[in-house]
């Protein structure tokens, strides 16, 4: 039982991290809460399905196409849905949420609601870890989560664009005065966020079917991980994913699987009451008074 909890806790935590990473990256860089994140996650799941099943595009090429298109989609979405209301937080949320609802309900209207909509796993089959069976797809999810975090660390510390991301995150006006185009970087942050969402959909959606509702759930996951971890802290997101991921599995095993969804909401409420800047979030306001 314990081995099961550890293995599935890790898998579940990795799923949460993959789904939340893009949302938190965008917010961390440009303070844009992209409420279309869950919809983008589902949109590219469906697009991937269309590439594979309608257009008969080879699997690897379909993945590549999905990643590229999701990046372009995020970039354009910034200029269409966010740029004009930039800085007005509530309007940003309303605008991106409207975009998200539009995307998701469009697919519902199109009839993308049956059981045929599922993506194939990257690799079929399973193996045993400590006598416990685990399929390759879930193993790949854990590895991908680790890989993506490592990529993000390298990217934000050693590349020009990544450093620009951090500069904008830390002080937008200074960054502009040093020759960084804040609008372009913000658009790129949404682009990266979308691309991360599509990575998550390619890896996570094969575990079940693609459903409209999981788009709303993905947004909830992203918000929960972000709030619990502290929105601009990568270690915080990892910690939050682990805490939420394991608590969910334990609740699922010992209480009831019906309560699993409640974990997100309870965690958000508890964290907002007890430590509003998240487990590892930084008290920005305090520091900026220097």
């Amino acid at each position: 039982m314990l081995t099961g909890i550890i293995v599935y806790g890790l898998v579940n935590s990795s799923i949460l991290l993959l789904v939340a990473l893009g949302f938190c990256l965008t917010f961390g860089v440009s303070r844009i809460a992209n409420f279309a994140h869950g919809a983008i996650y589902i949109l590219f799941g469906y697009l991937m399905w269309i590439f594979l099943n309608w257009l008969k595009i080879p699997f690897l090429f379909a993945i590549l196409l999905t990643l590229v298109l999701s990046g372009i989609f995020g970039y354009v979405a910034y200029y269409v849905a966010v740029r004009r209301v930039r800085g007005i937080v509530l309007s940003e949320v309303v605008s991106t949420f409207a975009l998200g609802v539009g995307i998701l309900e469009f697919f519902r209207w199109m009839g993308f609601v049956t059981y045929e909509f599922s993506l194939p796993p990257i690799k079929k089959g399973s193996l045993y870890i400590l006598g416990f069976p685990i399929d390759y797809q879930r193993l790949i999810i854990i590895l991908a989560a680790i890989g993506l975090v490592a990529f993000l660390y390298f990217f934000t510390h050693y590349t020009k664009l990544g450093l620009s991301f951090r500069a904008i995150a830390q002080n937008e006006r200074t960054a502009i005065a040093l020759g960084i185009d804040a609008d372009r970087v913000a658009a790129l942050s949404v682009a990266f966020g979308s691309a991360f969402a599509s990575v998550a959909s390619i890896l996570v959606l094969p575990l079940g079917i693609i459903s409209i509702n999981s788009g709303y759930e993905a947004l909830l996951i992203a918000i929960a991980v972000g709030i619990v971890g502290g929105l601009e802290s990568i270690p915080g997101m990892i910690l939050a994913s682990l805490v939420l991921g394991f608590v969910q599995i334990v609740v699922g095993v010992y209480v009831s699987s019906a309560w699993v969804m409640v974990v997100y909401l309870l965690a958000i409420i508890v964290i907002l009451v007890v430590m509003p800047s998240g487990l590892l979030g930084k008290f920005k306001e305090l520091e900026e008074r220097v």
């Binding site: 951090r166 500069a167 830390q170 002080n171 006006r173 200074t174 502009i176 005065a177 040093l178 020759g179 960084i180 185009d181 804040a182 930084k282 520091e287 900026e288 220097v290």
Partner: peptide, 22 residues
């Protein structure tokens, strides 16, 4: 826009310091 002017070679400091704190 400010970033283009910076590219043209005009740099400025801010009255209230704006470092990249982290």
């Amino acid at each position: 826009p400010g970033y283009k002017i910076a590219e043209k070679g005009i740099a400025r400091t801010f009255q209230i310091v704006r470092p990249f704190l982290h």
